[in-house]
């Protein structure tokens, strides 16, 4: 066991971890932050996306020990200080960018990292950026629209609206 200290969603935590303990296991099991999900075991679905030192990573493909000393941000820390949904979260609700909700935390974290680097992405850039986040429900249509809306852009027109 190794002792690690990290700052998770602004809270300093120190815990013992196993060598083979994944960051996602640490978050879910030790910190009970169950918003970060596990949807695959080959590092492809992106349901486990979190930010480590400001960068998007898959928490299922990084060991907790490697995050020693890091700043970690998860979905649980994304809402505004007053508890209201942040601009990306709100756009996902407004544009129906989620259905079952399982991929959603990873999608929101992924979208946040995109908009940090690219505040006005095109539809193509959004789709390219999301290639590591699989959603089985939405067909991505409304996820793309939500991210465009969150970035203050017009959303692609859709019939029957």
């Amino acid at each position: 066991m190794t002792e690690v200290t990290m700052n998770v969603n602004g809270r300093k935590v120190t815990r013992s971890v196993r060598g083979n303990e994944l960051l996602v296991e640490f978050l879910r099991e030790q910190l009970r932050l169950t918003g970060t999900h596990v949807g695959c075991d080959t590092s492809q679905c992106g349901a486990c996306c979190v930010h480590v030192n400001g960068e998007l990573v898959k928490a299922c493909t990084m060991f907790a020990a490697e995050a020693d000393g890091a700043e970690v941000a998860t979905i649980e820390g994304q809402a505004n200080a007053d508890g209201s949904l942040n601009v990306i979260q709100q756009a996902f609700q407004d544009y129906h960018g989620l259905q079952c909700g399982f991929c959603t935390p990873g999608m929101v974290m992924s979208a946040a990292s995109l908009l940090k680097d690219n505040p006005k992405p095109t539809e193509e850039e959004i789709r390219h950026h999301l290639q590591g986040n699989i959603c089985r429900c939405t067909g991505y249509h409304n996820i793309v629209r939500a991210i465009m809306a969150a970035s203050g852009q017009e959303t692609p027109a859709v019939a029957a609206e």
Binding site: G46, V57, S110, H129, G132
Partner: peptide, 9 residues
């Protein structure tokens, strides 16, 4: 390569 999260690691 991979996707943005993979490229960050």
């Amino acid at each position: 390569i991979g996707d943005p999260a993979v490229r960050n690691r």
